[in-house]
Computed example of a mutant assay.
Amino acid sequence: MTLYSKDELIAKFIELSEKGWVKNRRMGNSGGVGNTLEDYLGIEENNLPIPNAAEWELKAQRKNTTSLVTLFHSEPSPRALKFVPCVLLPHYGWQHKEAGRKYPETEMSFRQTITCKYSDRGFCVKVDRDAEKILIVFNPLEVDPKHSDWLNQVYQNIDSGCTNICTMQPYWGFRDLSCKAGGKLLNCFYVQADVKREEGEEYYWYNSVKILQNFSFKGFLDALESNNIYIDFDARSGHNHGTKFRMSESAWPLVYEKITPIIQDGEVLRTSY
């Protein structure tokens, strides 16, 4: 793997932008923008080939997308319980939409994208600054009536009443999450691409690059409380796809103290860092 200085990496971004449209090298892969960029740079799985790479992250995304950016994966505590597959899924899960077709009839699902505003299944995120924890809260009174059958099943699953239905709460401690997020996201190259399709093939033009510096955990907590960061659970009986912290790209200014454009709409704004 070739090693780059930061300036050499920026030069590679400029070179790629000036190429114009390049073909998706991973057709059928939802992460084609990032995968094709990694292939071009000759790197694997976001392993940035620069000195002090542990301080830098690479994020790539389509322009004008409503999709969220995955910041990092982190399973909630208490981790020894394997909380998502062993507590949330069996106690609060529902039948998977592909049960009886792609999966067995008994296949269960727990897929929820949760913010500090209650979801229609009664889940929300709570930032407890006194206890220094981010918690997942369940309130059956917030469950939409369309899920009444599921709620009745929840009561049966845990054999409990409304007042103590969620006495065990999944959580992330501030200290642990700050280390995780700060270590993963301290500084970041954020690359965007326009997308087009021709004759069944997909093409990208990597024409926007920003440097995001000085990740702020305080800003991260503020963004959580303002519903700009989402916690995404994606588990089913056969597999836990992991718990992700995600956000929209418009929220970068909330979590980074400095944002420096390098390329904007194909125009090179600076050539070194």
Rank of each mutant, 00 (worst) to 15 (best):
T2M: 15
L3Y: 14
S5D: 12
K6H: 15
K6L: 15
E8Q: 14
E8T: 07
L9G: 05
K12I: 05
I14M: 08
I14R: 07
E15T: 09
E18A: 09
E18N: 15
E18Q: 15
K19C: 13
V22N: 08
V22G: 01
N29W: 12
N29M: 12
G32N: 12
G34L: 02
L41Y: 03
L41S: 07
L41Q: 05
L41V: 03
I43N: 01
P51E: 10
N52Q: 13
A53M: 00
W56P: 02
W56V: 04
N64E: 11
T65F: 03
S67M: 08
S67Y: 03
L68F: 01
V69K: 02
F72S: 03
S74L: 12
L89T: 09
Y92H: 06
G93Y: 01
Q95F: 00
Q95I: 02
H96N: 11
K97N: 01
E98F: 00
R101Y: 00
K102L: 12
Y103R: 09
E105P: 01
T106P: 03
M108P: 03
R111S: 08
R111M: 05
T113L: 06
K117F: 04
F123G: 05
C124I: 00
V125Y: 12
R129Q: 11
D130F: 14
A131T: 13
E132L: 13
K133M: 10
K133S: 00
I134A: 07
L135Q: 15
L135F: 08
F138N: 06
D144K: 13
S148R: 15
D149Y: 11
V154I: 11
I158N: 14
D159L: 13
S160T: 14
S160M: 14
S160A: 14
S160P: 08
G161W: 09
C162G: 00
C162Q: 13
I165P: 11
P170R: 03
Y171R: 05
F174N: 10
D176V: 11
L185I: 06
L185S: 05
L186V: 06
F189Y: 09
V191R: 04
V191P: 07
E198T: 12
E199K: 11
G200E: 00
Y203K: 13
Y204V: 01
Y204Q: 06
W205K: 13
W205D: 11
V209K: 04
L212T: 03
N214E: 15
F215W: 04
S216L: 08
F217W: 04
A223H: 06
N228D: 10
I229G: 04
A235V: 00
A235S: 04
S237M: 04
G238Y: 01
F245D: 03
S248R: 12
S250C: 07
S250R: 13
W252H: 05
P253G: 05
P253K: 06
E257L: 13
K258G: 07
P261W: 06
G266D: 06
V268I: 11
